[in-house]
Design a protein around this nucleic acid. Structure first.
Lengths: 111, 111
DNA sequence: CATTTCTTCAACTATAAAGAAGAAATAGAT
DNA sequence: ATCTATTTCTTCTTTATAGTTGAAGAAATG
């Protein structure tokens, strides 16, 4: 069976973190971003699994960086979003925004 | 394994449709709402499965209505959101809104 | 060779999807 | 009246994807 055409819940979060981090998007900072901005504590294994799925779908692309001169500074796998990935985020955001617009019980909230 | 603490992708859509439909939230209209507003064509079986999960998590509550005097008018199962469900939608929306705010590549788009 | 940082692997459960089957009502025929 | 077909809505069955964690693996420095 083919992958699903829509973004999974975690896939969307990870894609947004990759977008935010620009040229510093790899495993650890992505996890930190989700924890800091969305309060979401996700194991690194889950992040990498989502990234692998996204790459197979052509929504992100990864390149291997150079090792950095610090203890444990092994090469990082950097991710960046593809045009299809950006479109996917836009479509998802548009659908959600439409769906949660004009709902009285959602108005006037903090955040 | 316990259910996941966060809303799945379809679960969020269904929860929003239930909110929108107010006192007319049952299987068929929910599917129509997702198709009309989000362009998302989901089989009824999938909708009911999501509703069952949401009810087990205490995010919606269902009541059996009266049969209506029309052909095929058997009793409907109406759903409405619980306080916990509303909070769940708010939290999810807040997290996503935070995450996709201030991203240059997402600005200036239609929708 | 111990330690640090980062990535991959393995096992398992939840979520999602679609189609088929089931239940409950009315309409129309006999 | 009751039998049968049709309509509407719900539940069941099956299969695959998505999400989760902990542990192991790889690559660097001290």
């Amino acid at each position: 069976m083919p992958p699903r055409p829509t973004l999974g819940e975690l896939e969307l979060l990870v894609l947004l973190a990759v977008l935010r981090l620009e040229d510093q998007a790899y495993g650890v900072p992505i996890a930190q971003e989700l924890l800091a901005l969305a309060g979401r504590d996700v194991a690194l294994g889950s992040i990498y699994a989502a990234l692998d799925r996204l790459e197979q779908k052509g929504l992100v692309h990864s390149t291997l960086g150079d090792p950095t001169p610090e203890r444990g500074g092994r090469a990082k796998r950097f991710f960046h979003i593809t045009p299809a990935g950006l479109q996917s985020v836009r479509d998802t955001r548009a659908a959600l925004t439409t769906l949660w617009s004009g709902i009285p019980s959602l108005e006037g909230e903090p955040g």
